[in-house]
Write a protein that binds this DNA or RNA. Sequence first.
DNA 1: ATATTATTTTTGGTTGACCAAATTCAAATA
DNA 2: TATTTGAATTTGGTCAACCAAAAATAATAT
Lengths: 238, 238
Amino acid sequence: MADTFTGLKEQIVESPTDKVISKVKELINSGVLKPGDKLPAERKLALEFGFGRTQVREALHKLEFYGIIKTLPQSGSVVNGLDINTLDGLISDVLNLQSYDFFSLVETRVLLETNAIRLCAERWTDRDMRSLEKAHANYLRDFDTSNRIGSDFAFHRTIAESSHNPVFKAMLMIVIPDIMTIYQRDRICAPNPDVMNEHQMMMDAIKNRDGEGAARIMAQHLQGVLDFAKSKLEENNN
Amino acid sequence: MADTFTGLKEQIVESPTDKVISKVKELINSGVLKPGDKLPAERKLALEFGFGRTQVREALHKLEFYGIIKTLPQSGSVVNGLDINTLDGLISDVLNLQSYDFFSLVETRVLLETNAIRLCAERWTDRDMRSLEKAHANYLRDFDTSNRIGSDFAFHRTIAESSHNPVFKAMLMIVIPDIMTIYQRDRICAPNPDVMNEHQMMMDAIKNRDGEGAARIMAQHLQGVLDFAKSKLEENNN
DNA sequence: ATATTATTTTTGGTTGACCAAATTCAAATA
DNA sequence: TATTTGAATTTGGTCAACCAAAAATAATAT
């Protein structure tokens, strides 16, 4: 009950930084700021918006991080040369930045991992294979210890690394921790011997350069998590 | 030539914030900070690391954004309950955060968009369809104007929206602006009548709930960009 | 008149002090 | 002894002043 209230509160409260971002968004949508324009100085924005410069700076940092503006030291900040619709969508996303629902996270993970392992099977180098075998051995070693989950994750991370697509890897690194947090909170996953076998089958498929086969095993491997997420989804919408 | 140098410089220069993040990473790797621990106060960290509190705050913000720590107002920051290997990988990623190579970005975009449109075809509601048709009409209207690229992007964004997977959409919003920036910088894409037809075919497939068909058209639709990226890749490794 | 240099202004970056909320801990009470 | 209460401390959040680099302007020399 208390959780419900605090949860609602968190959604309602809008941090000063986000308010500043909203103001910038208005500036862009109203046409005052066009892509490519140099936006006013921090002090000016702070005065105009009625916030402190600290809040404005933090907002600009966030906007720069998302590639919406580019800020040059001792010179000023510039709105990136994207079109207005794109900017509007991007800023909206920065603001929403909600915690995603579990099912969508898992769905994304499955997509990324099945394709990461496919590319891994096609592209691995000798160096990759050494890392993969080491990660696999570590998992077997830690299977009966408290490190099992960590080594499991490390194995998957190594696969993503060996896909030679850093974007895949980066996105997996965003998604998986969220999943693990929820997973650990709601259900302790008992040591499952099937997982060990599936890891072994993945290794074999990768070694044989069998991308499709590896992807199939990975999909099966993650089916359990997907089912769990789906049941959660049907159970209640949280 | 000058570009090469400035590019290198950007990679070499390590901002104070990143240095602080590295320090935190050392703390975690050395075992001083374990997952679940409450990390020292900002002032303490600033003193210990030899940086200002501003830099420490910014670093903590970044770490919180990536879900590595959770900071509670007037209380302190806590290392998230992930395992150490995961944390180490995550922090490394935050630090690297390099501009990704064009081909990997495009490869990721293709994967995300083909699956987004598949889900869109399966899941769209009446409300989604109205948005889709409006976006499509806007594209046709703006085809001969300077807004063509913007409306094109808006159409794709609406598809992602209608996939009802916010994670897909969020990740596309990260990837696509990067691609567009590079694309606009290196080559102006002329108005291509094929694109119009392909958009129409996508709409038809979506309406018919034909996920596979829609995905196939999207793949074909993006093939040009993928080829362009591949040629860029072979041309030079930048 | 133009190009160059010196100076002033503006810029983002940094610092230290201050604020209110949360926590802690010890003293007072039952 | 166990519980409550209240002051003192620690916490992240905010603010105003200051710094050096970049930009813009004015002054100078060609």
